[in-house]
Design a protein around this nucleic acid. Structure first.
Lengths: 216, 216
DNA sequence: CATAAATGAGTGAGCACTCACTTACATAAA
DNA sequence: TTTATGTAAGTGAGTGCTCACTCATTTATG
């Protein structure tokens, strides 16, 4: 059985690789993420970060020289390292199951990645927010996430289509529909302020996607 | 034939009702919206607004006493007046067509409202951004948009279901899927920075939704 | 000529960021 | 086991700058 690292662990590992970050620095990163998610990056002061981290303001600036660097330190590893790893692990996991039906694949994908999405909605919020504003960040995300999706998801979809289990719609549209359906679900849960709803609706998502992506 | 007001006109009407707003004030509103969409609300200074509007900084403050009031002036009519009116018009338009098939309804809905979405993506961006940050704005949107959707879309869906043309999934999920599919399409177009793609993909959206929302 | 609209230099509050200094810790000599 | 010493981590009062907002004055309008 392939191990399926969760995000928290993966993020910790990435941080650990970065030459032993001291405890207070991790508190700073955690406090930053929490506050950015709650209030937005631009509305969060470095004093607030220091206070929530239980740290002096100067400490916030020890490792990262500007507030922007701090933001980048949170977002970049998420996009360039954590996400690829998690997608790769999913692909491996699927590869071990032979002759999946469309329904089985979707159920596996959604249950697996939906949990990921919900757990990391904090980062997701911040990422979406900044992507709406910064064109260069959009570019960076496209150039990282795009290839990952193509490498991990497209082969699976192609195989499924060869078994006459999948719609003839282009792969990129299939991915758009799957990802979009999941993303919408988190956003609605966030809108309603109740993440229990998120889980309850998952069976509906699977049923809808299963039917919508069936071959004619 | 029912007139289908576009957003710009509707917005102008709402503004006109507000007791004759002078030309320069409209320039301020337009400049604000453009800048908020480009850079985000928090990253936009009142000086920038004044410059783009071709106006002194004091003028920005004549009608709206704070920057937040200015934002509210842009978002509130959109949510409370413009959106309801446009949804109402769509419902009326659909009501005139008897015995719609699911495909016809979806095609009408998506072509109609997708154009709306694309045209107003500027406001949409700002709205999404602020909703991710302000809990009270989320509340306001829910309490306005929710009932509108229920009143305009649910009856149409119920009728369709009575004709055995629609899935048994709950109405709120059907709406989630329709809206989410459209929203995802704008967001991807925005991500790729090419709104021509938005239109090209519409036939795919219709095909996917038509199939996904068919009865078993 | 009265009232509303517009101006833009000015103001003070709050913010990101700095830096001289203190504390914690590791290694090693006494 | 103490003491010395170098290095990295942490501190928080201080600084200068940006920005939202004001107001005395000027300009348009009916």
């Amino acid at each position: 059985m392939v191990k399926n690292t969760d995000i928290r662990t993966a993020f910790e590992q990435v941080m650990a690789e970065d030459h032993e970050i001291p405890a207070k620095q991790k508190q700073v990163l955690a406090a930053s993420l929490a506050l950015f998610a709650e209030q937005g990056f631009a509305n969060t002061t470095t004093k607030q970060i220091a206070d929530r981290a239980g740290v002096a303001e100067g400490t916030v600036y020890r490792r990262y020289k500007t507030k922007d660097e701090l933001l980048a330190a949170l977002l970049k590893p998420m996009v360039t390292t954590v996400l690829p790893r998690l997608m790769g692990e999913f692909a491996q996991q699927v590869a071990t199951m032979q002759d999946l039906t469309r329904h089985q694949l979707l159920a596996a994908l959604i249950k697996n990645r939906a949990a990921f999405l919900a757990e990391n909605w904090q980062v997701g919020k911040v990422l979406i927010n900044e992507m709406l504003i910064q064109a260069d960040l959009r570019q960076a995300v496209i150039q990282n996430a795009g290839p990952i999706i193509q490498k991990t998801l497209y082969p699976i979809l192609d195989q499924l289509r060869a078994q006459h289990e999948l719609t003839a719609l282009p792969n990129d549209m299939v991915c758009q529909f799957i990802i979009g359906t999941m993303l919408t679900n988190v956003m609605r849960a966030n809108l309603q302020g109740d993440f229990a709803l998120f889980d309850q609706r998952i069976p509906y998502l699977i049923e809808f996607l299963d039917q919508g992506l069936a071959p004619k």
